[in-house]
């Protein structure tokens, strides 16, 4: 029997790789992939807790997170296409016309 801590540590490592990638990369596509990594880490946590606490709720939550992830990927890529058409770039630090 694998202890629950192992799954939590794996999810933490995966989440922090995704977070660091989101903070450091310039390419919008890699940013979206980093978000998927973070959502996968959350899914691992949910399923691990559901397994060890004899519950079904965590697995249902993973189902909904996958729905939201699919919607988010579709919207994010549509925004990327729209931005590329207007600004001719996929780098987030060059999209600065709002002066943010």
């Amino acid at each position: 029997m694998i202890p629950l801590h192992y799954y939590l540590i794996l999810a933490a490592i995966l989440f922090i790789i995704g977070m660091t990638g989101f903070l450091v990369r310039r390419n919008f596509l890699t940013l979206l992939m980093s978000i998927e990594l973070m959502l996968n880490a959350v899914n691992i946590n949910f399923v691990a807790f559901a397994h060890y606490m004899d519950s079904m709720t965590g697995r249902i939550y993973v189902f909904f997170i996958m729905t939201v992830a699919a919607a988010e990927a579709a919207i994010g890529l549509a925004i990327l296409i729209s931005a590329y058409r207007n600004l001719k770039t996929t780098f987030v630090d060059e999209m600065n016309s709002l002066k943010g």
């Binding site: 790789i17 660091t20 890699t30 990594l37």
Partner: peptide
């Protein structure tokens, strides 16, 4: 999982 996640970044 971890090694390929690193490769993604």
């Amino acid at each position: 999982t971890i090694i390929s996640a690193l490769f993604v970044v």
